[in-house]
Structures are given as C-alpha cells and as structure tokens.
C-alpha cells in the first residue's frame, strides 16, 4: 500500500469515523441538555421560537449597517474564504466525484481553471485572516491554540490542493495523497475544534433569535 492508497482508504475512513462520532457526540451532548423555557409573557405579535430562530439564522448572515465599518474586514474576508471553500469543495469536479463516492449523488462542477482561481483567492484570504489575527491586539488577546490549529487544518487542504493541481513540490500522487491526508486531519479535528461552528452557528443564532424575538426585541 502506498501513501495514496493509505490516504484514500484507511486515513479517510478513520477521518470519517472520528468525524461522525465527534459531531454526533458534540451535538447530542449539547442538544440533550435541558434548555431554558422562557416563562415570561411573550410580547404581543412575537413569532414562535422556530420562526424566530430561522429568521435570526438568516438575518445574521450580514452585519447591521451600524457595524458595517467595524466589521468590514472580518465580514468580507470571512465570506471570501467561506464561499471560496464552499465553491472549491462543492463545485470542483474532483471534489464532486469524491462526494459522489461517499453519498452517491453528483451535480455539475465548474471548469478547473475557475476552481484554481477560487483556490488561489481562498488561499490569500486565509493568509489575510491569519495576518489579521496576528496583528490585531483584540484578536491576539482572545486567540487560543484552537484558533491557530483550526487555521492550519483549514489551510492545509487548500495549500496542498493548490500544490497538487500545479504539480509543485512532490510528484502528483504524493501531493494528492498529502491533500487527502489533510482532509482526514480536517475531519478528525472538526468536531473538537472551532470548526464545529459550522453546526453551532445554527444553534447559537437560533437560541438568541428565539430568546430575543420573544421580547419583541429587534436584533
């Protein structure tokens, strides 16, 4: 078994196991905790918890104009790499085939050179995110190992993917193997680090949405 076989097989398989276990564990241990039931009277016309949660999840996708200036970099740069990652993962043909191999369905992808362009932009955006984190006194103060590990674990697939498509460094199959291994690492880290925000974002936005909509507070 060479490195590529190991990456495509056992490494990813372990990644999937850990991911499935970890995410299920995190979500179950959170969702099965008793939640607060608001006994105060709801404001007249306040939406139900489900509607309020959903509304908040959507509304919070863009900052309020009051905060536009203060959050401009983080918002725009955040969107760039989040969308970039999404485009690469869900519209890059090799990735679609990877997903098809796992879930059995596929969809049309984008041309390789467009994906490559998006990957370069995503790469630069992630670099910018790190530079920002290292330069901002606030971010320096609140950053933990989790932030840097998560950055690295996110950056590795992008960087190794870029190396693989441009055949830089090692031979292609080695680059491909390293790229796939970085995905396995990503999957393993996911449930235990900051990447869980992909799930938690719905829970925390929803919780606050329901909490404040009950009061008729416009957030």
């Amino acid at each position: 078994m060479d490195l590529l076989d190991f990456a495509r097989g056992p490494a990813l398989q372990i990644g999937l196991y850990v991911f499935a276990f970890g995410v299920a564990f995190r979500l179950a241990s959170l969702l099965l905790l008793p939640r607060l039931k608001d006994l105060s009277a709801a404001r007249k016309g306040a939406p139900g918890a489900v509607v309020a949660s959903g509304r908040e999840i959507i509304r919070r996708m863009w900052p309020q104009s009051v905060y536009a200036e203060a959050t401009r970099f983080t918002t725009i740069n955040g969107y760039i790499f989040h969308l970039g990652l999404a485009i690469i993962v869900f519209l890059g043909t090799p990735h679609i085939l990877f997903l098809k191999g796992l879930i059995g369905v596929s969809w049309p992808g984008l041309p390789t050179n467009i994906i490559n362009g998006v990957a370069v932009i995503t790469f630069l955006s992630l670099i910018a995110a790190l530079v920002h984190r290292l330069q901002s006194p606030v971010l320096k103060a609140i950053s933990t190992a989790n932030d840097y590990i998560t950055w690295l674990v996110t950056m590795l697939p992008v960087a190794t993917g870029l190396l693989a498509i441009s055949h830089l460094g090692w031979r292609y199959e080695t680059l491909l193997a390293v790229h796939i291994l970085s995905i396995a690492v990503f999957l393993i880290w996911f449930p235990f680090g900051k990447l869980m925000h992909a799930f938690l974002i719905f829970l925390s936005r929803g919780t606050t949405g329901a909490h404040l909509a009950h009061r008729g507070a416009q957030l």
């Binding site: 908040e56 203060a70 959050t71 918002t75 938690l200 606050t208 404040l212």
Partner: peptide, 9 residues
C-alpha cells in the same frame, strides 16, 4: 450580541 456573527448572548 448584535454584532456577533454567532449570535452569542
């Protein structure tokens, strides 16, 4: 909480 993208209260 208003500015938090995660909506943390």
């Amino acid at each position: 909480t208003q500015v938090c993208p995660m909506g943390i209260d």
